[in-house]
Amino acid sequence: MPTPVLPCPCGLPAAYPQCCGRFHSGERQAPTAELLMRSRFSAFAVGDTAYLLRSWHSSTRPAGLELDPGQRWERLEVLATERGGMFETQGSVEFRAHYREGRHTGSMHELSGFSREDGAWVYVGPLSGVDFD
């Protein structure tokens, strides 16, 4: 788990507790689709499956989630965002997430859809095919 002096895994310059950690703990809700997407990347990086399931739309949420313990999510690039602001109800975020699995490095590219459910931003699913390099 990141320490307070290290930057958040999502790539923003704030420390984990002041950045995505506050969303993971339930202290705050992500105010935009992009911040929700960043917090979900951080949840993958720190292994917070409870947050990943909580922040998934009820219509597309799996019954359970098991993360690969050999896969480390290391870096996130936000490529584009459309809508998803504080006063909107839908949005999309295109991103590339970089990972390491043993000696192999790779990335995942996705255009993700987000919407509000009960007032909170949630991940709906990919709007385009998910590509792994």
Rank of each mutant, 00 (worst) to 15 (best):
M1A: 11
M1S: 11
P2T: 13
T3D: 06
V5N: 14
V5T: 13
L6C: 08
L12I: 00
P13T: 10
A15D: 10
Y16M: 02
Q18A: 14
P31T: 05
A33M: 06
A33I: 09
A33N: 06
L36R: 04
M37E: 07
R38Y: 08
R40Y: 06
F41I: 01
A43T: 02
A45T: 09
G47V: 01
T49P: 04
T49I: 08
T49K: 06
Y51E: 07
L52S: 03
S58A: 15
R61K: 10
A63I: 03
G64H: 09
L67T: 01
R72L: 14
E74A: 09
R75T: 12
R75D: 12
L76W: 09
L76C: 06
E77L: 12
E77W: 04
V78C: 07
L79Q: 13
T81G: 11
R83W: 09
R83N: 13
G85A: 13
M86T: 15
E88N: 03
V93N: 07
E94F: 08
E94R: 15
E94I: 12
Y99T: 06
G102C: 07
R103A: 13
T105C: 02
G106C: 06
S107N: 12
M108C: 12
H109T: 15
E110L: 10
E110Y: 12
E110Q: 15
F114E: 10
F114S: 05
F114W: 09
S115N: 10
S115Y: 07
E117L: 11
E117T: 02
G119R: 06
W121N: 02
W121S: 07
V122A: 06
Y123D: 04
Y123V: 00
V124P: 05
G125D: 13
L127I: 13
G129Q: 14
V130D: 05
D131M: 11
D131V: 15
